[in-house]
Design a protein around this nucleic acid. Structure first.
Length: 868
RNA sequence: GCCCGGAUGGCGGAAUUGGCAGACGCAACGGACUCAAAAUCCGUCGCCCUCUAAAGGCGUGGGGGUUCGAGUCCCCCUCCGGGCACCA
């Protein structure tokens, strides 16, 4: 079964075992109710033309080691891989070359698959999924229909980030410092019709689920901050001269209401036109125009200072009747809260800055309990401060005052306690070709009503129809019947952006303008005669879904990748469930992980998945930097290519070295010289197993026995390697294996069993050499099928230990003492010790600190002589 | 500005609950083997003082503290990395 190479010929050996695994389908995951399952997931790779880089290798080595370990532990492991293949780079490449993105994708995937196999990763390639495969995106579209049906998808004409250079709309997260993340092009605002998902409806649950997750704390904190839950109050202010009209604000400091000296509304606030006095109209209009033209970067640039303009209107403070001038200023965001605030400059830094700029009054209403004067703005709240100058609230603590005011306003129908979130709804469309088409058509109101009536509940229509105005006509979004999925992309010959903001799909008239049969979802071009009476004129949606869509649920598909009646069967979901561990970069801490949790919760509510949270345990591997300590990038020329190392040192060496570099979660620089060290380690393992002719090393002869120290070290190593794999501390597991190897090398003889046990420990990390040596030492079948060794606690027992003796906390000597020595016995030995005694001479021992098995610290009087 | 994480030999790192700082590896140096080199093996390898050694002193970014004892805990500061950034 093994090769016959005399020396460590890793090229031959690695190829041999890779084909062995392939032939034996060693990694095929088959449901098996007799064994506990273990589902290991990598973050979904985008198959770029550049191929696998070291970051991928790090990620996949981590999970592969876990997968091989869990298999050896008897778990039924599901360890799949697939391709998040929609997306901009491929489309951009197609634009440049005129080739179909699907062809480009196929080639890139083939490269990735070949590289992964040469890396020796134990994926079940039989379960590959590809987001661009209609069999897959059929279910992406299906999930979207469920969101649509539940009223979680809607259309809005909204100003979005438009990048002229890319010819596309970008999401906020794709813009870094006011430039496109891809290519660093300038961006501008442009209103376009967009699909939006109502993720805010799940804000509370997305936040509430976080604490129970076994995720890095920093990631949980980032998600919590992104969701941004904030408790406060809503208060409605009457407006002078506008009976019946009220201005509603959200504030977290309703307790400072007596200190409000003006109001601010966002430039986009709906009441601005109504409130602005004729004399102020030109100034306000000019201000709003300027604000609209500003980029988010300019608007949020804190260094620029605050600007605003007075509308001429006054609001009335409900607690004291004070007249509060209403200003328009862009430091108040239309998209948060009610888009309007009460300004309390004494107790808010932003309001204070604005009040200084425009000479508005500042009234202090919060003071320290002890009445000490403070510098304004004074933003402290809590129970150490009291209200002043606040009418009947004077003397209360802020929490008490909030309670009292909320209750009072609720009684008056003018306010209430309220919660706001920073989280915004999710902009879920792109004006691109290479994405999932939306499974809806736009139809007239009459046709919509008829279709819904005849559909009799079979269509996934929401309670409240989604509509928009296209070319001046009101159109309704009519979902395709589920039986008509997938809705495929039409073949186009030109992938260029239209430049109007619409996707290239808008130029395919034959596909776009159709006669449509609502019951079947069938379509023919509108240029032809209608096939029947129940066919209606319709227009397709030209937006496509963003890349996030396919990656929101792929982990479910892996459990049942070829199912064509459901996204996955309940049985498959029952067998494999959710990933037991999910490994990928921290750059996805917020968006991908939040979006996927959102979809998952919706699917949970639908009864499709059995758990509310998709990813119970999450791990982020650290970034591998270039040799220069900078991020690897082509422009810096510091990119290390995994293929080079695989051909020069073998994949076992590369895997082992990547894992040995340092803690898996740490950011660490790549040092190509260090790879020699682990390569030498594997060479040494080879030599300890085999002689120069490739036969079994004579020191492993039948009847060879291990020294007791060797056995103890072996069991220590079993324990440490097992625990370190579980805890993802691979670097220390590897050093422990090196320590054992060094000891085996020095031992005159080693039992065959000990060596084989060691090879089992090595196998998850360096599987090819472990298989080879295991077979050459007479191991049965494959090393992977041997059950994982278990350490024997009795072997770890020691009869003696080294006791460190300190005097006044300083290391003064060490003694080899029996394991069961008493404190008195230890003190007696220590005081008699030649190294320790001089430090005790003539000084009585004041105190003895004895930590069994560790240290003995004798505390004596320190002579307090004046001179040193 | 706010919230996190980090700083240990020439280098990557170890020390998981306060108990021998520097495991393991790289680099370097000395030796063995060799005609020679590579490979391999044996050894040295934090800094200072010292002819060498013995012995000692100092030492985990800086300063202070708690403790018999601090890389580890507390307070202050510096630098590096990540995230958020007018969210009322």
């Amino acid at each position: 079964m093994a090769t016959n190479s005399k020396d460590y010929d890793f090229r031959q050996i690695e190829a041999h075992w890779q084909s062995f695994w392939e032939k034996n389908q060693s990694f095929k995951a088959v449901a098996d109710p007799t064994r506990p399952k273990y589902y290991i997931l990598d973050m979904f790779p985008y198959p770029s033309g550049a191929g696998l880089h070291l970051g991928h290798c790090e990620n996949y080595a981590i999970t592969d080691i876990m997968a091989r370990y869990q298999r050896a532990r008897g778990r039924n492991v599901l360890y799949p891989i697939g391709w998040d293949a929609f997306g901009l780079p491929t489309e951009n490449y197609a634009v440049k070359t005129g080739r179909h993105p699907a062809d480009v994708t196929r080639e890139n995937v083939a490269t990735f698959r070949r590289q992964l196999k040469s890396f020796g990763v134990s994926y079940d390639f039989g379960r590959e999924v590809d987001t661009t495969d209609p069999k897959y995106f059929r279910w992406t579209q299906w999930i979207w229909l469920q969101l649509f049906k539940r009223g979680l998808a809607y259309v809005e004409e909204k100003p979005v980030w438009w990048c002229p250079a890319l010819g596309t709309v970008l999401a906020n997260e794709e813009i870094i410092d006011g430039k496109s993340e891809v290519g660093k092009h300038p961006v501008e605002r442009r209103p376009l019709r967009q699909w939006v998902l109502r993720i805010t409806a799940y804000a509370d649950r997305l936040l509430a689920g976080l604490p129970a997750l076994d995720w890095p704390d920093s990631t949980k904190r980032m998600q919590a901050a992104w969701i941004g839950r904030s408790e406060g109050s809503e208060v409605e202010f009457d407006l002078e001269g506008h009976p019946g009209l009220r201005l509603k604000v959200f504030t977290t400091r309703v307790d400072t209401l007596f200190g409000a000296t003006y109001m601010v509304v966002a430039p986009e606030h709906a009441l601005v036109p109504q409130l602005t006095l004729p004399a102020q109209k030109p100034a306000v209009a000019a201000y709003i125009r300027t604000a609209a033209g500003k980029s988010d970067l300019e608007r949020t640039d804190l260094a620029k200072g605050k600007s605003g303009v007075f509308t001429g209107a006054y609001a009335i403070n409900p607690v004291n009747g004070a007249r509060l001038p209403v200003w328009v200023a862009d430091y108040v965001l239309a998209s948060y809260g009610t888009g309007a605030i009460m300004a309390v400059p004494a107790h808010d830094e932003r309001d204070f800055e604005f009040a200084q700029e425009y000479k508005l009054p500042v009234i202090q209403v919060i003071a320290p309990k002890d009445g000490q004067p403070v510098e304004l703005p004074f933003c402290t709240k809590g129970t150490e401060v009291r209200l002043i100058n606040s009418g009947d609230c004077t003397g209360l603590t802020p929490p008490k005052a909030k309670e009292q005011l909320d209750r009072r306003f609720e009684g008056e129908g003018r306010g209430r306690g309220a919660v706001q979130f920073k989280l915004r709804d999710w902009l879920f469309s792109r004006q691109r070709y290479w994405g999932e088409p939306f499974p809806i058509v736009w139809v007239s109101e009459e046709d919509y009503a008829t279709a819904v009536r005849l559909g009799d509940g079979t269509l996934s229509t929401p309670d409240e129809a989604v509509s928009c105005v296209i070319d001046g006509v009101r159109r309704m979004a009519l979902p395709l019947p589920e039986s008509a999925l997938p809705l495929r992309l039409p073949i186009v010959t030109n992938y260029q952006p239209t430049g109007t903001g619409e996707s290239p799909l808008a130029t395919i008239t034959e596909w776009l303008e159709i006669w449509y049969q609502p019951a079947s979802g069938s379509a023919v071009p509108a240029s032809q005669p209608p096939p029947g009476a129940d066919w209606i004129l319709a227009r397709r949606e030209t937006n496509t879904m963003p890349q996030w869509a396919g990656s929101c649920w792929y982990y479910l598909r892996f459990t049942d990748p070829t199912n064509d009646t459901a996204l996955a069967s309940p049985e498959a979901l029952g067998t494999w469930g959710m990933p037991d561990i999910y490994v990928g970069g921290a750059e996805h801490a917020v968006l991908h992980l939040l979006y996927a949790r959102f979809w998952h919760m919706v699917l949970f509510d639908l009864g499709v998945v059995p758990a509310e949270e998709p990813f119970r345990r999450l791990f982020h591997q650290g970034i591998i930097l270039g040799e220069d300590g900078e991020k690897m990038s082509k422009s810096r020329g510091n990119v290390a290519n995994p293929d080079d190392f695989i051909s020069s040192h073998g994949t076992d060496t590369l895997r082992l070295y990547l894992m040995f570099l340092g803690p898996l979660e740490a950011m660490k620089p790549w040092n190509p010289r260090g790879i020699e060290g682990v390569h030498r380690f594997l060479q040494k393992v080879w030599r300890e197993c085999l002689d120069l002719e490739g036969g079994v090393n004579p020191k492993l002869a039948d009847g060879a026995v291990d020294a007791p120290e060797t056995l103890r070290l072996l069991h220590e190593t079993i324990k440490k390697v097992s625990e370190d794999i579980e805890g993802l501390r691979y670097n220390t597991a590897i050093s422990q294996m090196m320590i054992l190897t060094n000891a085996l090398q020095k031992a005159p003889q080693v039992s065959r069993g000990t060596m084989r046990t060691f090879l089992q420990l090595l196998a998850p990390f360096a599987p090819h050499i472990a298989e080879e040596l295991w077979a050459r030492l007479g191991g049965a079948a494959s090393v992977m099928t041997a059950p994982w060794p278990v350490h024997d606690p009795a072997r770890l027992a020691v009869t003696e230990f080294k006791l460190v003796v300190q005097v006044n906390g300083k290391h003064r000597g060490e003694l080899l003492v029996p394991a069961d020595i008493t404190e008195a016995g230890a003190v007696a030995l220590a005081t008699a010790n030649a190294k320790v005694a001089p430090f005790l001479a003539g000084k009585p021992v004041k105190r003895v600190v004895y930590v069994p098995r560790k240290i003995l610290n004798l505390v004596v009087e320190v002579p307090t002589t004046g001179n040193l």
